[in-house]
Computed example of a mutant assay.
Amino acid sequence: MGRKKKSRVIVQEFDDYFGTGTLQDWQRLCRDVGLSGDLPSISQCRKALKTVHVNIHDLLEAVKHGKQPQRFPNVQKLVHYTMRTGRFFPKDKVKEMGPVKALMRRIL
């Protein structure tokens, strides 16, 4: 599969997984990455997600199998893993205030 097609597939998979962006969608994402506690607003979910370092490809794969994705202790470990595996999310597909934006980390 070519790089452009892979990019389209991962973007579509995340859109399908996340849903319409309701508070419940954000709360599910927080639970799926292993955040616990009551996060009563989208802004609190977004803030909490900024502390989590996961690869988006791994997140979607883990959710399919009913598992939690690998969480990295810091951005450097996530960057190293992402560079090694080539499992990038296309930066140009990140919506300004969406969930992917909250999970994205500067890789290059």
Rank of each mutant, 00 (worst) to 15 (best):
M1E: 06
M1C: 05
G2C: 15
R3E: 12
K4H: 07
K5S: 08
K5C: 05
R8Y: 10
V9E: 15
V9Y: 10
V9Q: 15
I10R: 12
I10W: 07
V11N: 04
V11D: 02
V11I: 13
Q12G: 13
F14M: 05
D16P: 03
Y17P: 03
F18N: 01
F18E: 00
F18G: 00
F18M: 04
G19R: 00
T20C: 12
G21N: 03
T22C: 10
T22S: 14
L23T: 01
Q24N: 13
D25K: 00
D25G: 02
W26I: 01
R28V: 06
R28G: 08
R28D: 10
R28P: 07
L29H: 02
C30N: 03
R31T: 06
D32W: 03
V33I: 11
L35P: 02
S36R: 09
G37A: 15
G37F: 06
L39G: 07
L39H: 09
S41C: 10
I42L: 06
Q44W: 03
Q44T: 04
Q44P: 02
C45T: 02
C45M: 03
R46L: 02
K47Q: 08
A48F: 06
A48N: 08
A48P: 06
L49I: 05
K50P: 01
T51S: 14
H53W: 15
H53F: 15
V54K: 05
N55K: 12
I56D: 00
I56S: 02
H57W: 15
H57R: 13
D58K: 12
L59Q: 01
L60N: 05
A62S: 15
V63Q: 12
V63H: 11
V63A: 15
V63W: 02
K64C: 09
H65I: 04
G66H: 09
K67D: 02
P69L: 08
P69H: 09
R71G: 09
F72H: 05
F72I: 05
F72L: 08
P73T: 07
P73I: 11
N74G: 11
N74Q: 12
Q76T: 08
K77I: 07
V79W: 00
V79S: 13
H80C: 14
Y81V: 08
T82S: 13
T82Q: 11
T82I: 07
M83K: 15
M83T: 02
M83F: 08
M83G: 01
R84H: 09
R87V: 04
F88C: 09
F88Y: 15
F88W: 08
F89V: 01
F89R: 09
F89M: 01
K91C: 02
K93L: 00
K93F: 14
V94G: 04
K95V: 14
M97L: 13
G98I: 00
V100E: 00
V100K: 01
K101Q: 13
A102M: 03
A102P: 01
L103R: 06
R105G: 01
R106S: 14
I107N: 11
I107S: 12
